[in-house]
Design a protein around this nucleic acid. Sequence first.
DNA 1: TATGAATGAGCCTTCATTCAT
DNA 2: GATGAATGAAGGCTCATTCAT
Lengths: 201, 201, 201, 201
Amino acid sequence: MTAPGSADWRRYDPPDLPRVLDAALQCFAEQGYHGTSIRDLAATAGLSVPGVYHHYRSKQEILLALMMAVMDELLARSEAALASAPDEPSARFDVLVESLLRFHMFRRQQAFVASSEIRSLAPENREAYVGRRDTQQRMIDDVVTAGVEAGVFGTPYPLDAARAVSTLCVGVASWYREDGPLAPDELVARHLVLARGLVQA
Amino acid sequence: MTAPGSADWRRYDPPDLPRVLDAALQCFAEQGYHGTSIRDLAATAGLSVPGVYHHYRSKQEILLALMMAVMDELLARSEAALASAPDEPSARFDVLVESLLRFHMFRRQQAFVASSEIRSLAPENREAYVGRRDTQQRMIDDVVTAGVEAGVFGTPYPLDAARAVSTLCVGVASWYREDGPLAPDELVARHLVLARGLVQA
Amino acid sequence: MTAPGSADWRRYDPPDLPRVLDAALQCFAEQGYHGTSIRDLAATAGLSVPGVYHHYRSKQEILLALMMAVMDELLARSEAALASAPDEPSARFDVLVESLLRFHMFRRQQAFVASSEIRSLAPENREAYVGRRDTQQRMIDDVVTAGVEAGVFGTPYPLDAARAVSTLCVGVASWYREDGPLAPDELVARHLVLARGLVQA
Amino acid sequence: MTAPGSADWRRYDPPDLPRVLDAALQCFAEQGYHGTSIRDLAATAGLSVPGVYHHYRSKQEILLALMMAVMDELLARSEAALASAPDEPSARFDVLVESLLRFHMFRRQQAFVASSEIRSLAPENREAYVGRRDTQQRMIDDVVTAGVEAGVFGTPYPLDAARAVSTLCVGVASWYREDGPLAPDELVARHLVLARGLVQA
DNA sequence: TATGAATGAGCCTTCATTCAT
DNA sequence: GATGAATGAAGGCTCATTCAT
């Protein structure tokens, strides 16, 4: 599922989710988990209702599979981005933020559903998901902290700044449109500047 | 409902919502609109199901009333904050951001529900709500733009920065806890610094 | 309630039902007993819901009061009609049929509701109502039988014919409109001819 | 569903309605459409509530299906009856009336429900139903008119008489019992005489 | 009588899920 | 995998009715 090797974390092919998860993505993005029925989902997937249950044991399992797939792609890209950068704090920051931005632009719905349906996960599933999300946040924390320690970032509150960077990137999924006024690269450039502003001051 | 005069936009008494809206707030915050049944709501409010319908004609009407009440308080506080500031761009920016931050801290659940249940509004209601939300965003846009024109903010992308400021403040509602490690005033101070960083660079 | 003396069984003033019964009449005629709520009824009567209960103890009591009022007026008019006729079988038949016809024309809704909501009466109420209705039918039976015995009616099946006469008159309530193409007296005249046809052959 | 060929419009096998419609028939006949709940209906049909909705999308759809099935059988039998008669007005009248009578005897409940629940049909459905009912009435009108034109019926009011004939036949459904005192053929014979009385005079 | 608030029971309908074929 | 039939539980909402004021 598009977990590309270290070289092409910038490249976004059309997402290749299994039928049911793809349908779930559309439905959950539009109506939310609780607002979507298995019948909606089956219809969107072009399957019968028992056809859906042939692949997944429950609606909850579908949500979990979708959210995990999203998180796995995000983490894989983040790692690939960092791996592609020179061992230098500000370059590592730039590359991680760029990857987060691109993900929240080109996997807009995925990112939106993943961040808005956490509460719909059953407790045990939530735990597993939140663990991965924290791993992602820690990557940002580490990069910011390293920059501060190296003296290239001036912020007196590294962790607050790191969370703000994350918030900034995640927020992009709420409003980005492919047909918006800004070319993707320009949008990335501008928000990289904004992100740097968060860690500089 | 807590629409304070211009002097006390910083003061947050315990919210004084009608029984049913208060129950809706708790339920929607925890389980979302579609995840909450009228029976949940009635139980939380200490009413019977028809008791709820005595006050509101439908679940949708409850959501609308709640979201409008939230938005109205937010707008009233924003206006009061601006009205209390000297006519000087950077002071106006600070005061508006501070008000937004406090609102998203002390009206945490309200802010969270309002921002996460927009899609659950019926189209005609959504329109009304989004209009108010845009009004709020325009206040930020204006303050940032004024600062750029006055030469006190250096950002080359005023509108992107203004949106990022909004995202930063709204995001606070996702993680803030009253019993967190930071005193409220300290938290405000730190995020004011972060917000300034977004418009400076 | 318009139970006129023996002289004016032909005269129909606007019905003078108590507010609630009048509202019940309109509502039951349009939507049926089970299709009408107490709230519908209160709104139509211009009363509050408890206002309705001030006059009647239950919805069922309203139905019963209405149906009894209707039946009482019908019986009173039938008796008045017979009392006004010469003691001669064919004149008595004519006068009774004419009265039935007029009632089902000018008390159209009343007659319709009374005949269509019998099954909505609680068993003990139904018994009381059906007793009165049978009394009415027996008046027709008697008049037809008398005519046959006197040799002025030729039908070999007096009771079947009597029932058919009743059906014919009751049926008028299903289609009669005040603004229909036939003047009331003409309509009565024609159906009197038809009724005579039923007992003649 | 018992839409017999032209030869056997006199033959009435036990009605062969689908489970749910058969249950609806019993329930609506006894308690009316609004007085019947889907739960009543499901219990009578020996199904669960969703089992009912598996076959029909709404209670209204059930009513419509039932009423249409009834009307279709009535029309088919009327046409078959006329097709089986010699091209002679009084024979055509007899055969049509006989068919109507038999239908209202042997499809008693169907006929009763169809005639008493018209107002429970949603407006668009009502239109469709009433169209068919008018078709039936026009068959009677035509047969009576033809008889008058041919000089075999003496009535000066053919359309009023035709309506009375219809009322007479429909009325049978209100009181006929299979275990009544009259054999079916005798009952038909008597009411044929009554019907002729309506068009003769 | 009106108003306002309330309720247990019940309404029509849909839910997630299952099973036989 | 599809189809068709089924279900216990629950959904939003309304019912007839009551009581305090």
